[in-house]
Simulated scan of single mutants.
Amino acid sequence: MPEESVRLNRYLAMCGAGARRKVEECIAAGRVKINGEVVTELGRQVFPQDKVELDGEALSTVAQKYLIFNKPRGVLSAVEDSRERTVIDILPPSYDRFRLFPAGRLDRDSEGLIILTNDGIFSQELIHPRNGFTKTYEVELRRPMDEPHLIEWSDGVTYDGRFLKPISVRRMGRAPLQHWFEVVLGEGIKREIRMMARALDNDVRRLFRRKIGKLTLKKLPSGEFIDVSREELWRYIRDGKVV
């Protein structure tokens, strides 16, 4: 626990309770107590002697962890699920105490690069659009795509009343030809690539996240991870690193 007081939303993030939006929702919903009192003020100060609880469970700050993880297909980007395996379930039991969560998401049928952390402030900085960290995907479509549809995709498409536009999309020289594309996204709306494909009368067969910023996944086996420091991870994302 820091020697000086910190805002409640920041304290929860330091305890690994989730990214900023999630912990703020928990506070607003009355799920947080300080010294037995329900607190709904995001900016309430937490002091070293205070007892903070979330859903009746006492919280304490833990060492911050940052994992570069290769998510397998068929695994949920979630902390827990009663029916399906999550990215947290794959980790060794020794990581349970760190209360890790995914910084951003890949849907169940997608695979590739994802960051696991218990640093809610880092997670918010990574995923917020204003910071401009792009994400690069390799996408296999079920049906070949001709040049007119590729141009249409590049210019942006509308799906279910929402306009969706990638930063860039280019054809890849990978078999089967005219099925594989590299897609770069900025903000990253949930299932955005799948929605764009459907708007073009196509569908995604395989989706692999290759990059976050300039951090590139090439060598790390599926289901494996690398434990790095916060400084190392930011350097990899901003300046480049192949893992």
Results as ranks from 00 to 15, higher is better:
residue 198 R to S: 09
residue 97 R to Q: 15
residue 171 R to P: 01
residue 240 G to P: 00
residue 229 S to G: 13
residue 48 P to W: 03
residue 237 I to Y: 12
residue 1 M to A: 10
residue 32 V to R: 06
residue 112 G to M: 12
residue 93 P to S: 07
residue 229 S to F: 04
residue 96 D to G: 06
residue 8 L to C: 06
residue 135 K to A: 00
residue 203 D to R: 10
residue 140 E to A: 10
residue 127 I to R: 01
residue 67 L to P: 02
residue 13 A to F: 02
residue 112 G to R: 08
residue 165 K to A: 03
residue 158 T to E: 11
residue 90 I to Y: 11
residue 195 M to H: 15
residue 201 D to V: 05
residue 30 G to E: 03
residue 75 V to H: 00
residue 202 N to L: 10
residue 148 P to Q: 07
residue 92 P to S: 14
residue 140 E to T: 13
residue 229 S to Y: 09
residue 38 V to D: 08
residue 55 D to A: 13
residue 23 V to I: 14
residue 237 I to N: 08
residue 106 L to D: 05
residue 161 G to K: 15
residue 34 I to V: 15
residue 238 R to G: 07
residue 157 V to F: 04
residue 34 I to Y: 07
residue 70 N to C: 08
residue 65 K to V: 15
residue 79 V to W: 00
residue 8 L to M: 11
residue 234 W to A: 05
residue 117 T to V: 04
residue 137 Y to D: 03
residue 160 D to M: 14
residue 45 Q to D: 06
residue 26 C to T: 02
residue 222 S to W: 12
residue 19 A to L: 03
residue 123 S to R: 05
residue 102 P to M: 04
residue 197 A to M: 14
residue 238 R to Q: 09
residue 29 A to L: 08
residue 210 R to G: 03
residue 82 S to N: 11
residue 174 R to D: 00
residue 154 S to F: 06
residue 235 R to L: 06
residue 58 A to S: 12
residue 4 E to F: 12
residue 149 H to I: 04
residue 224 E to T: 13
residue 162 R to V: 15
residue 76 L to W: 06
residue 88 I to V: 14
residue 243 V to E: 00
residue 149 H to P: 02
residue 200 L to Y: 08
residue 179 H to W: 10
residue 48 P to M: 10
residue 82 S to D: 13
residue 71 K to H: 13
residue 7 R to I: 13
residue 66 Y to T: 10
residue 165 K to W: 04
residue 22 K to R: 11
residue 94 S to L: 02
residue 101 F to N: 08
residue 164 L to Q: 03
residue 181 F to E: 02
residue 171 R to V: 03
residue 102 P to H: 01
residue 237 I to A: 14
residue 176 P to F: 10
residue 186 G to F: 00
residue 185 L to G: 00
residue 238 R to N: 10
residue 79 V to K: 12
residue 84 E to M: 11
residue 117 T to Q: 06
residue 170 R to M: 12
residue 127 I to E: 04
residue 171 R to M: 02
residue 33 K to Y: 03
residue 95 Y to M: 15
residue 178 Q to C: 12
residue 38 V to Q: 07
residue 11 Y to I: 08
residue 111 E to V: 14
residue 65 K to I: 13
residue 56 G to I: 08
residue 147 E to Y: 05
residue 42 L to D: 02
residue 242 V to C: 03
residue 241 K to V: 00
residue 107 D to A: 06
residue 129 P to E: 08
residue 75 V to L: 10
residue 28 A to V: 05
residue 82 S to W: 04
residue 84 E to V: 04
residue 29 A to Y: 01
residue 48 P to S: 05
residue 140 E to Q: 13
residue 106 L to C: 05
residue 101 F to L: 12
residue 217 L to I: 13
residue 141 L to K: 09
residue 50 D to H: 08
residue 139 V to Q: 03
residue 143 R to Q: 15
residue 208 F to N: 09
residue 27 I to Y: 04
residue 136 T to L: 01
residue 229 S to T: 15
residue 113 L to E: 05
